[in-house]
């Protein structure tokens, strides 16, 4: 009796354990096989984004391993701001800010902003957003050149009071039927510029300690968090 009960319970349990073991082995193998490639993908994607917002030949260092993190509230960013530092022959040439705003139409908008040492903008790109396709997505370069309007702007050009969308009396175009999204992006870029223009903030970025850990891992975590948000 006792024996048969044991058999009845033990056999399925062992079988289940065997299936679990095979599953674990399979996943471990696939994970080992893909790990490096995935990391390289993440690094390349990040690198491509960063290269879009800095001038050509403006740096000779490895951007991905020269970053610092500052609290988001300094920039009215809804999460911590990572700053990649471009240097040429060791001298600072530009800083790339990865900032996040939640003032868009839906969810958060992540923006990379390249700022030269003369505090002018070398480029802006929106890297992640949940705005409405066809209406609030004209900040994607694939859809419209709108985001290029930021090139070479600064707090002097246009003047600070002009850092708004046209509807609010500013310099930047809104999208037809969608003002909230561009307003959020202009605001986020302006906030980063404001911070960078104060005293020696921009220069001080270059003496911050380098972030420990792999920045692509951090970006992976950001992706995960973003996906959970989107749920």
């Amino acid at each position: 009796m006792n024996n048969s009960v044991l058999k009845q319970v033990l056999k399925p349990a062992l079988l289940l354990a065997a299936f679990a073991l095979v599953g674990v082995l399979l996943l471990d193998t696939v994970n080992r096989y893909t790990l490096q490639r995935i990391e390289a993908n993440e690094r390349n994607a990040l690198m491509r984004q960063l290269m879009q917002v800095v001038d050509k030949n403006s740096h000779d260092n490895d951007l991905l391993h020269d970053s610092a993190v500052l609290p988001g509230k300094l920039f009215h960013s809804s999460s911590d701001v990572t700053i990649y530092r471009a240097r040429k022959q060791g001298r600072p040439s530009a800083a790339i800010f990865v900032t996040t705003t939640d003032k868009g139409y839906k969810g958060s908008i992540q923006i990379v902003i390249g700022i030269r040492m003369d505090r002018s903008i070398s480029g802006v790109r929106v890297v992640r957003h949940n705005e409405t396709p066809g209406l609030g997505d004209k900040m994607e370069l694939q859809k419209s050149p709108w985001v290029l309007d930021f090139d070479n702007t600064s707090l002097q050009q246009p003047a600070l009071s002009q850092w708004a969308v046209k509807r609010d009396g500013g310099y930047f175009d809104q999208f037809t039927g969608a003002t909230i999204t561009p307003r959020a992006i202009v605001g986020a870029v302006r906030d980063v510029l404001l911070w960078s223009n104060e005293d020696n903030h921009l220069l001080s970025v270059f003496s911050l300690p380098t972030t420990v850990g792999n920045p692509s891992e951090a970006s992976d975590r950001a992706v995960k968090a973003e996906m959970e948000n989107a749920q």
Binding site: L15, L16, F19, G23, L26, V30, N31, Y33, R37, I38
Partner: peptide
């Protein structure tokens, strides 16, 4: 796959397959 452990085994196999596909897509269709 005995009847008692049928569902957990199905779930296990499906979850393993999906995770493997997710990893492969992340690697090859980024």
């Amino acid at each position: 796959i005995t009847p008692e452990i049928r569902l957990p085994v199905f779930v296990l196999i499906i979850a393993a397959v999906v995770t493997a596909i997710e990893l492969l897509m992340h690697a090859f269709f980024f």
